[in-house]
Every structure is written in C-alpha cells, then in structure tokens.
C-alpha cells in the first residue's frame, strides 16, 4: 500500500474510536428528536465513507507518488515541535520573557543563524517589543 494509505487507516481507526465515544453519550429523550450523538455520528459515517473511497482510489491508482517532493525529515519536525511544546509548557513555570528569549534563540539557531550578534540583538529586541505591546499597551499579563 502507498505511504498515503496509512493516513487513511489511522483516520479510520480514529473514526471507529470516536464512534465508540459517541455511543457513550446520553440517548435522545422525548423532547429532543435528535440527541447529542446524532450529528457527530453522521459526520463520522461520512469520514469513514470518504476514507474508504480514498483507499479505493489509492488502490486502483496507477500513478506513482511524488515522493521526492514530500520527503519527511522526521528528526527536524520532532525537534521543532519539541521546542515549541517545551516553550508552552515552560509558560506555567518560568517568566514568559525568559521562555520567549529561549524560543526565538533556539529557533534561529535551528534555522541556521550563526552570528551571535544577530541572535542576541533580534531575540532581545523581540522580547522587548512583545513586552511593550502585550504587557504595557494591552495589559495582558502572561
């Protein structure tokens, strides 16, 4: 099966799990024609149908996937997501100015900025501008 098909298989598994969740919702009552589960169920059936249709299209498709374009650098994706998740998580514990400084700094390093002058000046200016805009002007305390 083509690489793309796995996405549909994952979506199918997810849809069946959600269908199970829908069935846990309270049933309809006398005053309501349709219960809280009706609409999600309808949508999930549609998702399942479209997934099956897509799998059939992939199965019968003779065209080769353009894999060169969609090369997935999983390591970089994981590092990037990890840095951003760590930043959001850090907001619960440390001052956002420190977290923001580290986020911008690390992302710039990840994107290949090597000049320390550039790294420090951009990061400090950005944190300062964010502080000024959000905390001073808009009174948003993070």
């Amino acid at each position: 099966m083509k690489k793309e098909g796995f996405v549909n298989v994952i979506l199918l598994i997810f849809s069946f799990f959600m269908l199970y969740m829908v069935n846990q919702l309270p049933a309809t009552n006398a005053t309501q024609e349709l219960g809280p589960g009706f609409f999600p169920k309808l949508i999930l059936y549609a998702i399942i149908a479209f997934n099956i249709l897509q799998l059939l299209i992939l199965f019968f498709s003779k065209k080769q996937d353009d894999s060169s374009e969609s090369e997935f650098r999983f390591g970089r994706f994981l590092i990037m997501t990890g840095i951003m998740a760590a930043y959001v998580f850090s907001l619960y514990f440390i001052d956002y100015k420190i977290g923001t400084f580290l986020l911008i700094f690390s992302l710039m390093v990840l994107l290949g900025v090597k000049s320390y002058k550039m790294l420090f000046s951009v990061t400090v200016l950005s944190v300062g501008a964010i502080y000024l805009l959000f905390e001073i002007v808009l009174n948003v305390h993070i």
Partner: peptide, 8 residues
C-alpha cells in the same frame, strides 16, 4: 529571523 518572531 522572521519565522521565530512570527511563531512567538
């Protein structure tokens, strides 16, 4: 330079 600022 732009992207880290945008994401923040």
């Amino acid at each position: 330079i732009l992207l880290p600022i945008v994401v923040t």
